[in-house]
Simulated assay, not measured.
Amino acid sequence: MSITSDDVIRTLREVVDEQPDHVYQRPADMDGSEPCLYVHTDETGAQVPGCVVGHVVSRLGVSLSNVADHEGTNASGLLEVLRISVGDDTAEFLDTVQGHQDLGFSWREALMRADEEKAGTEL
């Protein structure tokens, strides 16, 4: 499976466009200390995407069980262990979006802030 930087960014924007006002909340019944989880378990016991990055990699065809093995890894580290080579700019952008989501911003706001920060570094 070959995933490009454009694939990651396009998929991220699609996920955010579908749920722009979503504010991630970690399920209270999930173990661990991470502020967010890539993968949740629904009421039937099935694995489902959790945070915005979990949604992105799942939609790109990555197995959620493989993703769940790397909880606690930042977004760029997750891409690395999954052998998704997208370059530092895209990996750092995903880290930034994830970081804003973890601070309690809606997915739209997290993406907007990451876009603004990226634009500020390109001046």
Results as ranks from 00 to 15, higher is better:
Leu12Thr: 02
Asp6Ile: 12
Val39Asn: 02
Glu122Cys: 08
Phe93Lys: 00
Asp102Leu: 07
Ser65Thr: 12
Ile84Lys: 00
Glu14Asn: 12
Gly120His: 12
Asp102Met: 09
Gly54Lys: 05
Gln101Tyr: 01
Gln98Asp: 07
Tyr38Ile: 06
Val57Trp: 00
His70Asp: 07
Ala46Asp: 15
Asp69His: 09
Ile3Trp: 00
Ser65Ile: 06
Tyr38Asp: 01
Gly99Met: 05
Ser33Gln: 10
Ser106Asn: 11
Glu109Val: 10
Glu43His: 09
Ile9Gly: 01
Asp95Asn: 14
Glu71Gly: 05
Val39Thr: 02
Pro49Trp: 08
Ile84Gln: 04
Val23Gln: 06
Leu111Thr: 00
Ile84Thr: 09
Val48Cys: 08
Ile9Cys: 05
Arg108His: 14
Lys118Thr: 08
Leu123Ser: 03
Phe93Gln: 03
Gly99Ala: 03
Glu117Leu: 14
Ser65Arg: 12
Gly32His: 04
Asp17Ala: 15
Leu64Val: 03
Glu71Ile: 10
Gln47Trp: 03
Ser85Ile: 13
Gln25Ile: 05
Arg26Gly: 03
Gln98Ala: 08
Asp42Ile: 03
Val52Trp: 06
Val67Cys: 08
Val97Asp: 01
Val48Thr: 12
Tyr38Thr: 05
Leu123Gly: 09
Ser33Lys: 11
Val53Arg: 03
Arg10Ala: 11
Asn66Tyr: 10
Asp89Ala: 14
Arg113His: 00
Leu60Arg: 00
Asp29Glu: 12
Pro27His: 08
Glu92Trp: 07
Leu78Cys: 07
Ser65Tyr: 07
Ala68Cys: 07
Pro35Lys: 01
Leu123Glu: 13
Gln19Val: 15
Glu80Tyr: 09
Asp29Pro: 00
Ser76His: 06
Gly120Glu: 14
Asp88Ile: 06
Leu78Pro: 00
Gly104Met: 07
Thr41Cys: 00
Arg83Phe: 13
Val52Ser: 02
Ala28Gly: 08
Pro27Gly: 04
Gly61Cys: 12
Leu82Cys: 10
Ser33Glu: 13
Arg26Met: 04
Asp7Val: 05
Arg83Gly: 10
Pro35Arg: 01
Thr73Leu: 13
